[in-house]
Design a protein around this nucleic acid. Sequence first.
RNA 1: GGCCCGUUCGUCUAAGGGCUAGGACACCACCCUUUCACGGUGGUGAUACGGGUUCGAAUCCCGUACGGGCUACCA
Length: 506
Amino acid sequence: MNKRVRVRFAPSPTGGLHLGGVRTVLYNYLFAKKHDGDFILRIEDTDQSRFVPGAEEYIFNCLKWAGLEPDESPVPGGIYGPYRQSERKELYSKYADQLVMDGHAYYAFDTPEALEKMRYDYKTEQNPSPQYDHSLRMKMRNSLTLSADETHQLLAAGIKHVIRIKMPEHETLSFTDIIRGEVSFDSSFVDDKVLLKADGMPTYHLAVVVDDYLMKISHVFRGEEWLPSVPVHILLWKYLFGLENMPLWAHFPLILGPNGKLSKRDGAKYGFPVFAMSWTDPKTGETVEGFKEKGFLPEAFINFLALLGWNDGTEQEIFSRQELIEKFSIERVHSAGAKFDYEKAKWFNHEWIKLSEVSSLKPEIRSLLSEKGITDIDDALLGKVIGLVKDRCTLLSDFMPQSSFFFKAPQTWDADAVKSKWNEQKKEFFKQLIRNYSDTTAWQAPVLEENFQTTAVANQLKPGELQLPFRIMLVGGKFGPPVFQIAELLGKNETTSRIKNALEVF
RNA sequence: GGCCCGUUCGUCUAAGGGCUAGGACACCACCCUUUCACGGUGGUGAUACGGGUUCGAAUCCCGUACGGGCUACCA
């Protein structure tokens, strides 16, 4: 009689989507797919002061790139919509009112200044951040301290107010976290959180409970930063919808940066991306590069995020999306925070590039090359080039330096690599090689290599010592695939002309 | 300060009472390769500390230390 699995990712559209967020999406997604359930995207935009234009669409794009598209979301919609909390505004107040009627919540008329004063007045060394809680609520201006008449008058007069939950004292609130086991709280330590704001919008606490109920969410998987607010949510479930209907919960550990927490703001500072895709702040115009733009394959991105805090118990590390869906389990998510290791992330990407079919790499590489002004490349040639160089590319962007010489003759040569051992005899060899190659009819690597060898021997030179200069002539530097393969792809005219040009410089 | 979560090689982790503490990344060495890589072989390197429980603890319990999160009319 298990409920249908329905999970959700509920971001607040305020900026770039970072590693931790994507991992939360990923684990939700994998869990949903594994159990033939639904993955829902719900936009938590109840804070109108934090509205950032473009942020919502950006999130959609990131999910699309990562291949983690929701079954229900603001875009295709769904039967439990709307999926933007700002569009569900009217829904929430009746639940808040019900809580007030039942005595579980109350109206509070304190102004922001009054709250600030309270925090200042009661601040001590022992208690640096006083809370609006059972110890202080009777000292504030609310429906608990005001008479019923006064309260009604204030409400009738349309005085700005919020609704706060009335946290009970000495009540033990506990739940079983799927990856941490039983966690319990003493309600006395929790403050009277605001449920409904003065502008009529719910806070996260009310909205999350109401929407999870209305959207029939079966499991709530979110970051560890939410753990402290669980007691409030437990109470809301108890008061509103019944504990027996409460979803199962799991709180994921945080992803940390090199020195502690991974902050959105530091974006570029670490020397590696933190966002899935590049994000441009509409206010400052500042852009922070994302994993996509850095040259990561979505398969690799997903793969290393999945392994950051989870493993299947075997020594397997490379997983396709399908394998992840089959093997993922929430119970095996590690409970400790994980420091993000960029070197390992690059290793995953390298593995995925090596694993990728040439044809699947083509479109991406083609657009990368065209950005550098290299266009009109023969499709078959491009395929061969990719096949030859992909093993030496860690990032997609490495294709450029690794393969541009196939399409554009080198402008400079690593002369130092040649100079020391260069002499007239070698120069003669290459002149002869040009003649021999010009007569070659079967322009293929093995033929070229054999020709090269025999010419060398005829000149009483060691072929090995000539290969490096040859490479420098064709490539410009000491790198790249086997040199005769390069010559084959370059073709007769290009090869001989590159030798000729280089000979004038050497 | 209070509350909550956490702690195995530098990093990600395996091992959920019995063992040479395993793997991967990174690093080092060698092999392959007369380029750079790929690949192969080997190496350095960890159970935070202190008490218990037990024949036996990385594994269970307590304490300490350290790390992190929360402590908004933000999510």
